[in-house]
Amino acid sequence: MEEQAKQFIEALGGEDNIEEIEGCITRLRGTLVDPSKVDQKMLQSLRIVGRPIIMGNGIQVVVGTHAELIGTAMNKIMKDG
């Protein structure tokens, strides 16, 4: 899970690009500094469902039913630096 969380952080443009992120039951949702920094190819390679939904600086990525675990792992990594 930690490895996957690291990859999602990278795909979303790195830690500095992620203002906040949380895992809902099936999707990651958050706010980005610059949504154009999202690596779409890398996101697709992480087996997300469909395309990420980007509205303004907000993003939602459907990852499947382990979303909360990934979100928690991402926040832990970002907090621990």
């Binding site: 099936t26 999707r27 469902v49 469909g50 939904i53 939602q60 459907v62």
Partner: peptide, 9 residues
């Protein structure tokens, strides 16, 4: 909600 309406899940 598009994610549900489009049956992405």
């Amino acid at each position: 909600d598009p994610v549900f309406a489009q049956k992405m899940l």
